[in-house]
Computed example of a mutant assay.
Amino acid sequence: MTLDRTKLLAARLKAATDRPYLASALFALSVVESTVVPTMAVDRLWRCYVNAGFVDATPVPQLAGVWIHEVAHLLRDHHGRAGRLPSDLQGDRSRVNIAQDCEINDDLIQDGLALPAGVLTPGTFGLPDGRLFEQYLPDIPETPECPRCGSGASGGTEPWDLPPGEGGRVSPAEAQSIRRYTADAVRAHQRGRGTVPTGWRRWADGILEPTVDWRQVLAGSVRQAIAWASGAVDYTYRRPSRRSAAQAGVVLPSMRRPAPSVAIVVDTSGSMSDDDLAAAMAEVAGVLREVGVRGNRVTVLSCDAAVGVVRRVARAEELELVGSGGTDMRVGIATALAQPTKPHVIVVLTDGMTPWPDEPPAARVIAGLIGPDPPLPPTWIESVRVR
């Protein structure tokens, strides 16, 4: 079957006419006819692969909706975000693609777009609208049947992908320019009293007013501190150097690399709300997962004006936080340093309404500051705003 390009391009024109803020992105896509792709799909170079049979069987209004669906994967940088998932989730491309479709399709349906029958939405899985695909992913069940929106969505490569040097293509720098131009167009359309779905408004705000992902910053700070501690080699006589055999009557020390340990001090004072404590718990779980320090190398202390609970943990489910009195994180830091296994890194999760030690302790301290406007700690403490 020959691809009906007139019908396909008429659908793109309709999509661009009805949603003018997406026009530049839609026309940046180059068309590649393919008998391998099941329907339509995109790669990360903004090449749109199209099956002629799918175009012939799909009415123009629905084709227009599919055009917008595919370009949304690229505008929202789904392949880039998929590449930042944990490795076990990156390999499950079917569930990733389904979660991404849930992020997109609820906005398209809210916008009144016609879509082919059987499209997946958050409601398909009993989930609420308006979330990002990373939030949907844990609740998406394993399924043998899934959409295939291409490597521009779930990452990796697809059998229909052209080599990088073939066909029309958009560079990463050009793609970012398209995203910013489109975000400006979304804002302008909204100011002109046009209707823009909530998801697109939120996306445009994120492009035009980017915020640093504090989760990555916090995990990165802890990883850097752990790497620093791991590189702090020292001498030990517990295992004599092999060179001792060449020195009669002399025992030479060997070098050792310490296994880093982490203490996490969680502020449980009365000034911390239940939501703040939930955020603190989540970040403890994130640090345990991201940094890779396991078993008896992690100590968690719940602290207000005094230390309530000291536990070594390997999983977030083991945590227990008690308190609700005054606030003095100096006590928590001192207690952490007094543990039999002295920590190399101390992470303090607090709203900042606390006194701090007058001098840097014998460990690297990172403060995760929770709340809308926390006061800053001393300059020798590395701080991360938890929003």
Rank of each mutant, 00 (worst) to 15 (best):
Leu277Val: 07
Ala278Tyr: 13
Met281Ser: 15
Ala282His: 05
Ala285Gln: 03
Ala285Val: 03
Gly286Ala: 08
Leu288Val: 00
Glu290Trp: 01
Glu290Asp: 11
Glu290Phe: 06
Val291Pro: 08
Val293His: 01
Arg294Gln: 04
Gly295Ala: 12
Arg297Gln: 10
Val298Ile: 10
Val298Cys: 06
Thr299Trp: 07
Val300Ala: 00
Ser302Ile: 00
Ser302Phe: 15
Cys303Val: 15
Cys303Met: 00
Cys303Glu: 12
Asp304Pro: 15
Ala305Ile: 14
Ala305Arg: 08
Ala306Thr: 09
Ala306Asn: 13
Ala306Arg: 07
Val307Gly: 15
Gly308Gln: 03
Val309Glu: 06
Arg312Pro: 04
Arg312Ile: 10
Arg312Asp: 15
Arg312Thr: 07
Arg312Ala: 07
Arg315Phe: 04
Ala316Gln: 10
Ala316Ile: 00
Ala316Tyr: 02
Glu317Asn: 03
Glu317Cys: 04
Glu317His: 02
Glu318Lys: 12
Glu320Thr: 12
Glu320Asn: 13
Glu320Ala: 09
Leu321Ala: 09
Val322Gln: 11
Gly323Asp: 15
Ser324Glu: 15
Ser324Pro: 12
Thr327Lys: 06
Asp328Phe: 10
Arg330Trp: 11
Val331Tyr: 11
Ile333Tyr: 12
Ile333Glu: 13
Ala334Leu: 01
Thr335Asn: 07
Thr335Asp: 06
Thr335Arg: 05
Ala338Thr: 01
Ala338Cys: 09
Ala338Trp: 12
